[in-house]
């Protein structure tokens, strides 16, 4: 697909920022996909955060997995850190739960309102900047979604051919965090 590696960083920046004409966007959608998009993407994202740690993978528009000297952590664009990327970052977020008619009425009205005995609206905020990072609509009892646990080493080593300096185990460490909470 090398023939499609035709966009430069500025093209992708304009795409991301909605500055391209729709016809150009459509053409980019129809074209084969550039193999080096991820590299351009990292250049754009790295230039937009106020901190220096290397971004390994953007998880969401606000959250990134970054390389610290000894570990890989989830970091907000504002600089707040959520710890090991293998633990669901939500466990380190602020949470506000709309589980009453009064609280849900601040978001929905009349026939729009869900029944709070069936579902609670969980809002996750960054403790640093107050960004609303995710909103889950869950029945009571549902653990938060751990939306994505990347196999970072396989990705860097086998998919893009740039192995990371150190390999870490691809494992969900969220249960360990819960155990720490319960054993103290």
């Amino acid at each position: 697909m090398a023939e499609y590696d035709i966009y430069d960083v500025e093209d992708i920046r304009k795409l991301v920022d909605g500055e391209l004409p729709w016809t150009t966007v459509q053409q980019m959608m129809k074209n084969g996909k550039d193999r080096d998009r991820f590299d351009k993407w990292l250049v754009i994202l790295q230039g937009r955060v106020p901190w220096k740690e290397k971004i390994l993978l953007p998880l969401t528009p606000a959250l990134f997995i970054v390389q610290k000297p000894k570990e890989r952590v989830v970091k907000c664009r504002c600089g707040h850190e959520f710890g090991d990327y293998r633990v669901n970052w939500k466990l380190s977020a602020l949470i506000y739960v709309r589980d009453s008619d009064e609280k849900i009425s601040e978001v929905y009205r009349g026939h729009e309102k869900p029944d709070t005995e069936w579902i609670q609206l969980r809002e996750y905020y960054c403790p640093g900047c107050g960004s609303q990072l995710e909103v889950e609509a869950m029945p009571r009892g549902c653990p938060p979604d751990f939306e994505f646990l990347p196999d970072l080493d396989t990705f860097y080593r086998e998919w893009i051919g740039r192995p990371l300096p150190e390999t870490v185990e691809f494992v969900d460490r969220t249960p360990e965090r819960i155990k720490e909470w319960t054993s103290r």
């Binding site: 993978l57 979604d145 939306e147 990347p150 196999d151 970072l152 990705f155």
Partner: peptide
């Protein structure tokens, strides 16, 4: 990206 995705 390889890895595990979960969505309820």
């Amino acid at each position: 990206v390889p890895g595990r995705v979960r969505k309820s």
